[in-house]
Design a binder for these strands. Structure first.
Lengths: 149, 149
DNA sequence: GTACATAATGCGATGCCTTCTCAATAGTGC
DNA sequence: GCACTATTGAGAAGGCATCGCATTATGTAC
């Protein structure tokens, strides 16, 4: 599990600082039930409710930073804005099946996908951060409905 | 290859119409070299240069519609806006490796991923439209640079 | 412990991609 | 050819995300 002290170490390596805001954000994601993901706005509201508000600018900046460090995954689901979740190795690592009509999102696991992703990145000399298989499809219920696309 | 007449048939099934604009957009994507993808804006400019301008509203509407029909793939690369390309089966089907620092995007093929995606969709009763493995990583050149994240 | 350099925060303004509204246009079936 | 209505085009509006800058505060050196 990625800890606050490993975050601190990694930040210091680059001459950056550990702030209470960064620590809080990391902890929120660590305590989130597996497979739950938050948008920047969700996180903003959640923190206000918890009585430790963090400005939206800071949230956006740190979500982006933590994604680029490989700590978080940036998900493009179907709602038109990004979602974030903690980035975990197998066997917690998972992927998403999305209905393009009702936006219903289902998780599924498949460890060989992560292996393939790692192999591809390695072959090209890339340092892997995240690897997501996103399936766009139409769910059974939407297939039955006559509603337009 | 998906043709104009199959587009027409599929539109008519739903009570929709084949317009010159839709025909033009489909043809542009069909004639694009494999692996090239366009943003809405790219397409808009391209059409103006070709002397058959189509309004941005219409472009956005039809790109979305054709993605939801499974004709186009909607790609989330790293530039902050969507890109589109024609959706092709194996062995043309491919995936993307993206450097989160310089946004360099590389394609790679792996037919077993499409098979897994199809199997997953089928198992859940979904009608598959598209399946993309997106790898976020840091390219060799950016690993060497000292530049911040 | 104190002081300093500068990274990070918060606020509001700004930007950009995308969607919406609505009158005008044009496919389709009869 | 006519009626019906899906579609288009133009501009306005919306929403997510980023930027600029004054203020705050972390980490380091003394």
């Amino acid at each position: 599990m990625y800890t606050v002290s490993s975050l601190k170490a990694e930040l210091h390596e680059r001459g950056w600082r550990l702030t209470p805001q960064r620590e809080t954000i990391l902890q929120i994601f660590q305590n989130l039930p597996t497979g739950e993901h938050l948008s920047a706005e969700d996180l903003h509201v959640l923190l206000q409710q918890d009585g430790e508000p963090i400005s939206l600018s800071t949230i956006y900046r740190n979500l982006k930073m933590m994604s680029r460090m490989g700590i978080l995954r940036e998900l493009e689901l179907a709602e038109g804005h990004k979602h974030y979740e903690i980035n975990q190795p197998a066997p917690y690592h998972h992927h998403h099946l999305i209905c393009v009509r009702c936006n219903k999102t289902t998780e599924f696991k498949n460890d060989s996908i992560l292996k393939m992703g790692a192999k591809t990145a390695q072959k090209e000399g890339y340092h892997l951060l995240d690897c997501q298989l996103t399936i766009h499809a139409i769910c059974p219920s939407c297939q039955r409905s006559i509603l337009p696309i």
